[in-house]
């Protein structure tokens, strides 16, 4: 079985069908790029994988993680648990404006640590001490992650004091902090000035090149990036996967008419 296995995924909004049955698999450590023109269902697919939208049909299975059947009902707690196996970086960053870069990374980690510790220690001094220890640990981890995305000197800054590229790098650190098994990016550079896209793409690339490379799914309009960083490329159009393969196959010799037209349009 593949690490991630998506089968027959369908999603409708009212009467509009956005995904008409998406199937794909990916292996651990792979980087999957999803390309295609707007309205093709790329973002909806990513949102279904993160349970921001609930698929109407199909299954999502992560080895050693979870199995999601669209037909089943899940409690908010169960969804939360599945969701934490996935990470998502948004197009518009969505940092919390009232917190510093460091707090943005640290607070979500600490909330989860607290939840776990509350279950472990019912009450009292031991719990307070454990939470205090978790705070020190998580704070250090948050600092380390921000340093890794090149923001060691910006930890105390609020989001409005950071450039778009810096905000997106904080958002990446924040997503990494939750230690997801698969990290998803929804057009991570589309809201950025062209001059700032490079720094974000470099960070994503560095995650792939790290010792145990991250498993990532990147929805992107950056064809260069998809061609050079992805192990596998999916071209989506009208709610289905039109073309799937290595970057060489998809960019070099696309079989689908739509994919050829799309790539041609991109190059013009």
């Amino acid at each position: 079985m593949a690490f991630l296995e998506v089968t027959g995924l369908k999603k409708r909004f009212g009467n509009t069908s956005v995904l008409h049955g998406v199937d794909f698999t990916m292996e651990k450590g792979e980087v999957l790029a999803i390309i295609g023109s707007s309205g093709g269902g790329k973002t909806t697919l990513l949102r279904c994988l993160n349970f921001l939208e609930m698929a109407n049909e199909g299954t999502i299975r992560m080895e050693g993680g979870f199995t999601f059947h669209a037909a089943k009902q899940y409690t908010p707690a169960e969804i939360r648990e599945m969701r934490l196996k996935m990470g998502l970086v948004f197009q518009s960053f969505n940092l919390f404006p009232q917190y510093t870069a460091l707090e943005n990374v640290y607070i979500p980690m600490q909330l989860r640590a607290k939840e776990a510790l509350r279950a472990e220690y019912p009450f009292g001094h031991a719990r307070r001490e454990a939470i205090g220890n978790a705070k020190v640990r998580n704070m250090a981890q948050a600092e380390k992650l921000l340093a890794e995305v090149g923001l060691a000197d910006k930890m105390g800054n609020y989001p409005y004091q950071l450039s778009g590229g810096q905000q997106q790098r904080v958002a990446i650190a924040r997503a990494l902090a939750m230690q997801p098994d698969i990290l998803c990016f929804d057009e991570p550079t589309s809201a950025l000035d062209p001059a700032l896209t490079g720094e974000v793409l470099r960070v994503i690339r560095s995650l792939k090149d790290a010792e145990n490379g991250r498993t990532m799914i990147v929805v992107t309009h950056e064809m260069e990036f998809a061609a050079h960083v992805a192990d596998k490329v999916i071209f989506m159009a009208d709610g289905v996967i039109e073309e799937m393969g290595t970057p060489e196959e998809v960019f070099g010799n696309p079989k689908s008419e739509k994919c050829r037209a799309f790539l041609h349009g991109e190059k013009v």
Partner: peptide, 22 residues
């Protein structure tokens, strides 16, 4: 913005945590 709720959701926050911390 909806994005604030969604960011909190993908970071595994509960509804109560989202309201009070975010």
């Amino acid at each position: 913005p909806k994005g604030q709720y969604e960011a909190a959701e993908v970071l595994g926050m509960t509804a109560v945590e989202t309201f009070f911390t975010v």
